[in-house]
């Protein structure tokens, strides 16, 4: 991967220039579809953009220096980690990449939940701490199926490179792995029925309860970027056609991502929130079953 190529992927596509507007678009799609399914009109499409600008323009409250530093650094780290993960997605088959970028991707995708847990505790609010604890418990629960699915794909393709995996993994492995990854998306994005970590109206906003103004704006941005990165990862793994021309690949990548947002938002609007133990159980039981199935097929299939 050359420096120019890496910069292009980080700053243009699928990085900053593509991801930030699409993050706002996805946040809007989620709110709008929920509103339409509830018989409301819902927010106009520029809503997340104006929310972001308004929050940036609010004056931060005075805090003790170390807490202020931690509360500013954590959302920045979450945004940076997610952008890095986005840059690694092999949307184009021969866009480079390197052996082991799967490991880096997994590490970068784990940064936002980790930052959210730390943010909940550093804000020293009882609601933030509750949200952080729930986030931590859930992240242990969903990590098992999430990692098992990715390991199964890597074993099936006999490679740790994302672009090789997205091209060469067998469909017998890919299908259960994609199902396991899809099951992990709602909990990673904290939407119903697995929204217990930020449980709106119950523990206010979970880990971000105490965050205000620009710091909250960065959390909202990180959340939007997580939508782009996770649906993008799923889209890359679900569409392996290597010989398709690059404009077609880009269009299919965006289309699968947006369709996935619609499905997740519809499921979220149609379901109620599960309790922490119930949500964790779904991942330990059904998520792990799918992940283990993918792994067994990957190892046993000739």
């Amino acid at each position: 991967m050359t420096v120019g190529r890496a910069l292009f992927q980080l700053l243009v596509f699928p990085g900053l220039l593509y991801a930030v507007p699409v993050a706002w678009l996805m946040l809007w799609m989620e709110r709008k579809l929920t509103a339409r399914l509830q018989g409301r009109i819902g927010p106009p499409f520029y809503q997340p953009f104006f929310d972001f600008v308004k929050l940036l323009a609010k004056r931060p409250l005075p805090r003790p220096p170390l807490q202020a530093l931690a509360m500013s650094a954590l959302p920045v780290l979450a945004v940076a980690g997610t952008l890095g993960a986005l840059a690694l997605l092999p949307v184009f088959p021969h866009s480079g990449g390197f052996t082991g970028d799967l490991v880096l991707l997994v590490a970068l995708l784990e940064i936002p939940p980790l930052c959210a847990v730390l943010a909940g505790f550093v804000s020293r609010s009882i609601y933030g701490e509750l949200g952080a604890t729930r986030e931590a418990v859930l992240s242990i629960a969903y990590s098992l199926p999430f990692l098992a699915a990715l390991v199964a794909l890597a074993a099936a393709a006999n490679s740790l490179s994302l672009s090789v995996i997205s091209q060469q993994a067998m469909w017998q492995v890919r299908l259960p792995a994609l199902l396991a990854l899809a099951l992990c998306l709602p909990v990673k994005l904290r939407v119903n029925p697995f929204s217990v970590a930020n449980a709106e109206q119950e523990i206010y906003a979970g880990a971000t309860t105490e965050f205000e103004g620009p710091r909250l704006a960065l959390w909202e941005l990180a959340h939007g970027l997580e939508w782009v990165a996770l649906t993008g990862l799923w889209a890359v793994l679900a569409f392996p056609a290597a010989n398709a021309a690059w404009p077609l690949r880009a269009v299919v990548f965006v289309a699968i991502s947006l369709a996935l947002v619609l499905v997740l938002a519809a499921v979220a609007a149609a379901t109620a929130r599960l309790k922490l133990a119930q949500a964790a159980r779904v991942y330990w039981l059904w998520g792990s079953a799918l992940g283990v199935l993918a792994m067994v097929v990957a190892v046993v299939w000739p």
């Binding site: 709110r31 509103a35 409301r40 009109i41 819902g42 927010p43 106009p44 809503q47 104006f50 929310d51 409250l61 609601y127 709106e200 109206q201 206010y204 906003a205 309860t209 105490e210 965050f211 205000e212 909250l216």
Partner: peptide, 12 residues
């Protein structure tokens, strides 16, 4: 919500 109004749980 079509006016962008949201009822927030946290005063922050």
């Amino acid at each position: 919500e079509q006016l962008g109004i949201r009822l927030e749980g946290s005063p922050r």
